[in-house]
Amino acid sequence: MTTLSCETPETQDHAPALMKILERHERRRDRLIPILQEVQEEFGYLPEEQLKAIAAVLDLPAAHVFGVATFYTHFALEARGKYVVKLCDGTACHVKASIPILEALQKRLGLSDRKKTSADALFTVETVACLGACGLAPVMVINEEVFGQMTPQRAVELVDELARKEGGAP
C-alpha cells in the first residue's frame, strides 16, 4: 500500500560501446572523467547523445555532465579532423617562435583561432600549453607522433604530405 514501485527506467537502448565503458567503470559517478576520456576515444569526440546517455545512466543532471565536459580542454564537443595537430605554445616553445608556425598552418589550411577544423575534416589545429618536450622546442604533435624543433616550413610540409597521402587537393 504505502510502497512505491521502484523500477527506474533502464529501458533505453544506448550505444553498446558506451554501455561497455560505463560498465567497466561500474557506473560510478566519480569515474566521470575517465568515462568521458574513453567515450571520446571511442567516438572521436563527445557527441551530445552520448553525454545525455552518460547522464541518464549515472543519474547525474545533464547540466553537470555538460559542465564537466566543457571545463577540460581535452574534451571536444564537436567532431575533430582525422589528424589533430597540436602545436605547443608553452613557454619554451613560445620563446622559440611557435606562433609563426601556428600562423603558417592556419594559413595553409584556411583556419583561424575560432575555426579549428579544416573544411575537408582532415585536420584540426590546436595549441596546447607544453607537451613536456621543451628541450626540443618548438614542438608539434600530430595525433600521437611528436615532432621537435619545428619551423613553419617543416610544419606545412608535414601537413602537405598527409594531405597528399589522403589524396586530397592542397
Partner: peptide
Amino acid sequence: GIGAIDFAHRGHEAAVLPAFG
C-alpha cells in the same frame, strides 16, 4: 535536488547554463 542549471566552460567563458546551453 535538481541541477537544471550548472556552470559550464571555464575562465572567462564560464557561464551558468542549462545542459548543452
